[in-house]
Amino acid sequence: MRPLVAHIDLDALRHNYRLACACAPQSQSVAVIKADAYGHGAVACAQALESKALESQVPAFAVACLEEAMVLRDAGIQTPIVLLEGIFSADELPYVDKHRLWMAIHSGWQLDALQAFTPSAPIPVWLKVDSGMHRLGFAPEQAVSVWRTLEAMPEVSALHLMSHFATADAMDTGYFSQQMATLKALAAELDAPLCLANSPATLARPEAHGAWNRPGVMLYGSDPLEAPTKFTRQLQPVMTLRSEIIALREVDVGEPVGYGGRWRAARRSRIAVIAAGYGDGYDRHAVDGTPVLVNGKRAALAGKVSMDMLTVDVTDIPSAAIGSEVVLWGKSHNGEVLSIDEVARHCDTISYTLLTGVLPRVPRHYAGV
């Protein structure tokens, strides 16, 4: 009965996937649904993207690990699934084989494990190259010999070259261009199909569009770029974190609100108490002034976020009453949108952490199934 709910609009998810495809019509787009589809529910999102409501079925999903892939397979999802970090142990390879998973290879021990394994059918492999992110992947000077080894292995099929950009979201293209030059040279030497573009590169770097792209956070309506584009303006929020006012009180000039008295009334103020807090995943780092929507109108956080509640200044919203709609991010009933990216900036974080941080305590309600 607690009013806080994460409403998931699966039609918006499908719209954003179509947009990813429109950005790169010559590429195939794998839908990244790791981390429980960025907090939206991986099974529900995969089913929505497999459904007849989408004109053509998503050709592949991507997750971080075997455990995430098995959740999808156990739910009946049959679409190919890419393990973006590959295997963490050689013991996983029988499951990769049985469930027809695709896998990244980023380290020598994974190559050794695959060479020692005999699958029932060749396993599609994406060879990960460290082109400058300096996380996972073979150095470019190693990649040629590793590619040749994989290319000769009967255990391997559908070999692709994969990498990840460190700054595709930035307006300064210098480092992105450096990574891109490394990858183009390597791909030309190997005559290799590419999988490079994450969400920002899908949206804004057509030179990175390859045989496959990997749109992730954009599928959920978040703009990953430093500056908006014609494509990012078309993104639709998939999650609306919606609650209600559960109490109202008047405070006099100078009176504090919340733990530590961080916020003090500069005028006689009307304060609304909202059923949502850091125990639900709303970020405690949110500063005073962080926007919320009350009855579709912008209001501001007033005081520190508590575990189960937060407080908002609604002095300028006379319609605010017990039970009034409060949108922490997403779309209000009157159509007004509060971008999760704007909320994230007030929390000194990014949308990814807010979306993946919504805890299981918060029920997900799905529309557009």
Rank of each mutant, 00 (worst) to 15 (best):
Y17Q: 09
D91Y: 13
A302C: 09
A20E: 02
P360H: 07
Q178N: 09
L241K: 08
A168Y: 00
W147H: 07
A204R: 07
V292S: 04
A152F: 05
L186P: 00
Q57G: 10
M103P: 03
L19Q: 09
A166S: 15
H15A: 02
D348E: 12
M218D: 02
I271N: 02
D313Q: 08
D130L: 09
P228W: 15
A197P: 06
A64V: 13
I81F: 05
S89P: 15
G210R: 00
I271Y: 01
G254D: 07
F61M: 03
M153Q: 13
V326K: 04
L150A: 05
C65N: 11
W147I: 06
S306C: 13
Q28S: 10
E325G: 04
V305T: 01
R233W: 10
A113V: 00
I350C: 12
L111Q: 14
S324W: 09
H285S: 13
L159I: 11
G296P: 01
P291D: 03
A42F: 04
L235H: 03
D191T: 04
R298T: 07
F61R: 03
R264E: 06
V253D: 04
A104I: 06
L49M: 14
L359P: 00
V71P: 01
P206S: 13
H40M: 14
S199C: 11
Y38H: 14
A46G: 09
A24S: 10
L190Q: 07
A181K: 12
P363M: 11
A181I: 01
R214K: 12
W329Q: 08
R214W: 01
D130H: 03
H160D: 01
G137P: 11
S222E: 04
D172H: 10
C195I: 02
T149I: 10
N16A: 08
V343P: 05
E141L: 11
P291Y: 03
T149Y: 11
A275L: 13
V253F: 15
W126H: 14
T240L: 04
L161P: 08
V253M: 15
P291E: 05
E67K: 12
D191S: 13
